[in-house]
């Protein structure tokens, strides 16, 4: 799949933003006054910049409001609802933290759950695609949720939780790479089944349907740049999980340590998300003799 910058920025930043909002809503960290304004503001900025980036992927961005209509079947529509609901429910909690005041714990928990639900809905946009076997697997929601929680914990300066989540993230990343490699074969789609000719004998492409490029080749059959995937896998696990954990272990907790850990984590997150798209193979490639 084509690793479009708009969807990579969307999933990384909104994941990070809703991950931080989750810890803020749940009251795991409780900044007050100016601190609260900066921290809640940062979470909102990440989430909103991410959501705005997703509209750059659209052919008709002015009609984006229509994406709210099909929540009964479409995960993209559910994601739209969940993200708006999370941002709206977080608002009174943010105001209470900045100006003083308190809301019932029940409300805090519902708002926090809504943030998690948003991240889950984002992951399901990709997980539901059976034609991309690597995505169509439990590792996709696991990866999105653990990424968001790890980023949120680092931003919240929660040392112990960050260490546990960094360890979990490294494991989930490794498992998603390893199991992901076997997913296409496990789906069972081959050039033989795609053309229905496999029963006759070995099928190979004789002549392509067109000599120029097209939307399918650009969007679904992106093979450029996979040659560095092994190095990027190591880089993503190191930067997203291992190094931030080391920073928290070595440096004294403070704005400096959080900033360094966050920068490393975000670099790793972008590398991992680039791989998430670039390594995903769509079954339509079988018609073109490519994956």
């Amino acid at each position: 799949m084509h690793p479009a910058p708009s969807v990579i920025i969307f999933t990384v930043l909104s994941g990070l933003g809703f991950g931080l909002l989750f810890f803020l809503c749940a009251g795991v960290v409780r900044p007050f006054g100016l601190d609260a304004f900066l921290v809640w503001g940062f979470a909102y900025a990440l989430a909103i910049i991410g959501l705005a980036a997703s509209t750059f992927h659209l052919g008709q961005p002015m009609r984006a409001w229509r994406a709210f209509t099909q929540w009964r079947t479409s995960w993209l529509s559910r994601e739209a609802w969940a993200s708006v609901a999370s941002l709206l429910m977080s608002a009174p909690l943010a105001l209470a933290a900045i100006f003083g005041g308190a809301l019932p714990v029940f409300f805090e928990m519902v708002a926090a759950a809504m943030c998690l639900l948003t991240i889950f809905a984002t992951s399901m946009i990709y997980t539901q695609i059976a034609a991309v076997p690597r995505w169509n697997f439990w590792t996709t929601p696991a990866l999105f949720i653990v990424f968001a929680l790890t980023g949120g914990a680092i931003l919240s300066g929660l040392t112990f939780l960050s260490l546990i989540l960094c360890g979990t993230l490294a494991a989930v990343l490794w498992v998603s790479f390893k199991l992901g490699d076997g997913r296409f074969a496990a789906r069972g789609a081959t050039m033989g089944s795609a053309t229905g000719l496999g029963g006759l004998g070995a099928v190979r492409q004789f002549a392509p349907a067109h000599t120029g490029s097209n939307y399918l080749l650009r969007e679904m059959i992106h093979v450029v740049g996979r040659k560095h995937s092994q190095r990027l896998r190591v880089l993503s696990i190191l930067c997203a999980a291992v190094l931030p954990a080391l920073v928290f272990l070595v440096l004294p907790l403070g704005i400096g340590a959080i900033a360094i850990a966050l920068c490393l984590h975000v670099i790793g997150a972008f590398a991992a998300r680039w791989l998430f798209f670039a390594e995903a193979e769509h079954v339509v490639g079988l018609y073109y003799g490519q994956r």
């Binding site: 992927h57 052919g59 993209l76 034609a131 789609a189 969007e219 679904m220």
Partner: peptide
């Protein structure tokens, strides 16, 4: 249609 392309992704 908003041109999000998700249907094209979903089609095998």
């Amino acid at each position: 249609c908003i041109g999000c392309g998700l249907c094209a992704w979903a089609c095998p």
